[in-house]
């Protein structure tokens, strides 16, 4: 499990080459900045189609949208073949490349326990093409393919529980992180660097354009999501050992997360209550798992 660090321990050196072409207040650009800061120089970065975030001082390899897991596999095996296992193959993908079109290849790479690190900047929709729904879009969120109308209340289905899905592959390391908690995020990347096998870190990355809030609120909203229990911060090792990294005595109400985002503006009190109930119930399971130190998969 990761070891806590303080803000003073965050490396000063930037791996990003800025300014990049991300939107103002882009959560994913910050996710990239923080993750690669922690990774340092000895990595090869892999990308599949996604929003531009932060360009990094690393070699960068791309492939077809659906090929992320296989590309990392190829690089990792290739590095072994040429005797350069010191170099880490890192994937930096969006939620499309992780939850949806990229899932098959990533699931297979997880099942083979490839020696790779996957980092997902999760902004909960296909933002690069203008905010279409993804498997990561939460229930009731409107996207350009889930407009609200007489027959629609936004997305009908809950967000895919991708960290637990990967944990169910019994891989060495699965973690969630948030751009609002940089120390936790960097600690997790630090830890992931020290182990081998398949590792995945999913980073909550608010998108001002798609979630529809003013860009200055990126961190505020990310923090509210974590504090409300909508985006819990945790780690799972070998599909078994579990640790909740952020445990407030009391969760903040989900309204503090939902209200500032216009993608949830249409929600009724009953719908908000449903989200609250669902969040609280899931949170209780997480607290139980944390007390036991394990998940029952």
């Amino acid at each position: 499990m990761s070891e806590r660090i303080t803000r003073a321990q965050i490396p000063m050196e930037e791996m990003g080459i800025t300014p990049g072409s991300a939107c103002q207040g882009c959560g994913a650009a910050l996710a990239a900045r923080l993750a690669f800061k922690a990774l340092g120089p000895n990595v090869i970065r892999h990308g599949v189609p996604c929003c531009p975030d932060t360009v990094t001082k690393t070699p960068q390899i791309g492939t077809v949208f659906e090929g992320g897991g296989a590309l990392l596999t190829g690089t990792s095996r290739g590095l072994k073949a040429i005797g350069r296992e010191d170099v880490l193959a890192v994937g930096f993908f969006g939620d499309g490349g992780t939850y949806d079109i990229g899932f098959q290849g990533l699931s297979a790479a997880a099942e083979r326990n490839e020696n790779i690190l996957v980092i997902t900047k999760d902004n909960e929709a296909y933002m690069n093409t203008g905010n279409q729904r993804s498997g990561a879009t939460p229930k009731y969120a409107t996207t350009s393919t889930n407009p609200v109308g007489p027959k629609s209340r936004g997305k009908e289905q809950p967000k895919k529980n991708i960290p637990f899905i990967f944990a169910a592959h019994y891989v060495p390391y699965v973690a969630t992180a948030s751009v609002a908690f940089p120390e936790d995020l960097i600690a997790k990347v630090n830890y992931a660097k020290t182990i081998t096998g398949f590792r995945i870190i999913i980073i909550q990355s608010p998108c001002p354009v798609g979630w529809r809030f003013e860009p200055e609120k990126t961190i505020e909203i990310a923090r509210a999501g974590v504090q409300a229990g909508i985006w819990p911060l945790f780690e799972i090792q070998n599909g078994h050992d579990f640790k909740l990294n952020y445990k407030p005595k009391e969760l903040k109400p989900v309204t503090e997360y939902l209200k500032p985002q216009a993608r949830f503006r249409h929600m009724t009190e009953a719908e908000i209550a449903e989200v609250q109930e669902d969040t609280t119930s899931k949170w209780q399971s997480l607290i139980q798992s944390d007390e036991m130190g394990k998940v029952l998969i």
Binding site: T63, A70, G74, G105
Partner: peptide, 15 residues
């Protein structure tokens, strides 16, 4: 699809 991408990745590294 993955077999093609795996060899693509490994070939890029020089294998």
């Amino acid at each position: 699809l993955s077999s093609q991408v795996v060899v693509q990745g490994a070939s890029r590294i020089g294998a």
